[in-house]
Nucleic acid binder design. Structure first.
Lengths: 339, 339
DNA sequence: TATGGAGGGTTATCCGGTTCAGAGAGGGAG
DNA sequence: CTCCCTCTCTGAACCGGATAACCCTCCATA
């Protein structure tokens, strides 16, 4: 079954291809009567514009790209990306934009993917996630001149348009809450140190603790194993922390398990906070106090900005809502002996 | 910066567009010397074939689609899909194929996405996942005549090519293992009952238990909350099971928490098995005995078959490797009093 | 020396839709 | 009645490649 083209519609309606094109695109140049007739025929035979043919003229592919550079094992357990994607797509679908997805293993490979996509005119723009310092991908995208929205801190996004959520506020809220509960030794089990948002959180954490609590930061690769190992080390030290803030939920769960294994009771002996809420944080015992964000909304905002950028509009940096603390059973008053 | 076309290369090389086309596609019709010259120029100026222009001729979009029909919240915590995608892409990338992803909320919407993609010639084929009984999407894809690989049981895939993993064997292995440990009352906390693989597992579970153990099946929507609720009900019944097999890892973790909450010790009083292994299963205490599969490989096989189908080859149904049981700390001998 | 064929290259056309420059028809103003 | 303008529509060119058909040259062979 051959797909219908505007030529088919034209011959049925007894007009030229051009009239059909105008009619279906809402352009002036055809009478309302003719337009209605053409639209009716198009509907009837189920015509859809051939995206390749369209792209060949206007250079618009009606498609944007997203490359994820993390091992599949980690991507799988990080609810963040799927939620982000679903938020992005809510916006794209409304405008008939598609999303091209690619999982890569290095920044070099990711840049290559961008070059391919752009060179082949497959996409009109991209989202850049997991921003690093001196990120080579930023330079590559600038070089290509491809519309791009960086989902990450604007300090490192170069000339690209950025959208980010203020991490400092969330850190301060968390530390303030823990200090109010009497905690004076707080640890942070952070993610990959080369990610910008890790460092931003690190700094905010140090500042927030300054003068009110001892603090220690351990960096990991976001996996449960490293989260567990870090927790084991922290809880084994003579002046062990009474509260630990984890950079994702899987590490927080791993930490919780380690604590139970070491007979450190949560929240009596140890308080635990997870960054980014998820169903996972709620099914363990005790349920985890978490920093909650509306990630689909974050993705939706990013998508709106990318589409605006593609449309040639000017898109200033945009600070999205900060995460807010959702207290649950994993946090409580500091053990009295340790203050 | 305008993207270079074969016309640019042609004028630089002093030949016609056709010669360039032949040279760059490895077709006969140009001398090796000319070919080398053309290829060198193409490399130098960073030429890449415009995918739209190519698609406009051959009808090949060099792109395949995947639509996921589950709420974002569940997609996020299910490592399955991300691992599947990463496996799929390993194969696609080698052949310069891209993957179009869309998250939808209903089968009707999913069919619509297929019609759009196909009507717009955006994709050459699709993967169909989460097969239902009397699945309307199968009929839709057959009607469209679009190459499709069903990742699911062939009994319901109609004329579409299917790839699936034998669930029966995994169920038998699990039940056999639990029975060998002395368990005589085994529960299964299953996923959505309308999914084919749920029913297949249900049947295999009943058969495997037949005559050797009492059994009960509870259906859920895969969320941790329902997994917890099901567990609570099971453990509250007078003749509570001594082993529970969960259809995914998040429910297994939720079940583990409920057990601990109810002072049912795992594995002393209750054994727990999770279907589909993941980092999550390994970070909780005790680590979960799980049914392990190589999901990326599964995705890779599916991708190979879809590409073969698109190339016009005949693709018979294919049974992939069954999951194998990985015993960990969450399973042990049945409590002696209950036999 | 005529002939056939391979090798190397070109021209013309097509894919499906967009866009530009006009061409007729019809109507209002002068 | 003529002039000009607007409205509606059309032919042709174009986007970037693929492909069918054909042409020229050179060399080997009968």
């Amino acid at each position: 079954m051959k797909r219908p083209t505007i030529a088919d519609i034209a011959s049925r309606a007894g007009v030229s291809k051009v009239a059909v094109s105008y009619a279906l695109n809402g352009q002036p140049g055809v009478s309302e009567a003719t337009r209605a007739r053409i639209v009716a025929i198009a509907d009837e035979i189920g015509w859809r514009p051939n995206s390749a043919a369209r792209a060949l003229n206007g250079a618009r592919a009606n498609c944007v790209g997203l490359a994820l550079c993390r091992p599949a094992r980690i991507l799988g357990v990080e609810p963040f990306f799927m939620e982000l994607i679903s938020g992005i797509e809510g916006v794209l679908a409304d405008r008939s934009y598609a999303l091209l997805l690619q999982v890569v293993t290095s920044h070099q490979q990711e840049s290559e993917v961008y070059r391919h996509w752009w060179g082949e005119s497959r996409i009109d723009g991209v989202f850049l996630v997991d921003l690093h310092y001196d990120d080579s991908r930023v330079a590559e995208l600038e070089r290509l001149g491809m519309p791009a929205v960086v989902i990450g801190h604007p300090s490192q996004s170069g000339s690209l348009s950025a959208i980010w959520s203020e991490e400092g506020e969330a850190v301060r809220e968390t530390v303030g809450y823990l200090v109010a509960l009497g905690h004076r030794r707080i640890a942070r089990v952070a993610g990959l140190p080369e990610l910008v948002h890790t460092t931003v959180r690190d700094q905010a954490f140090r500042q927030a603790c300054e003068g009110v609590a001892e603090h220690v930061i351990v960096h990991t690769d976001y996996t449960g194993e490293e989260g567990a190992r870090a927790t084991r080390r922290l809880l084994s030290s003579p002046d062990r922390p009474t509260a630990i803030v984890y950079d994702n939920d899987i590490m927080a769960v791993a930490g919780l398990s380690v604590a139970q294994e070491m007979r450190v009771e949560v929240p009596r002996d140890l308080s635990i906070v997870a960054w980014d809420d998820s169903p996972l944080a709620q099914v363990v015992r005790p349920p985890l106090t978490a920093l909650t964000r509306d990630i689909p909304a974050y993705g939706a905002h990013a998508a709106q900005r990318l589409l605006a950028l593609i449309a040639g509009e000017d898109v200033p940096p945009y600070e999205d809502q900060a995460a807010i603390l959702t207290p649950r059973g994993s946090t409580g008053p500091a053990p009295s002996g340790t203050q």
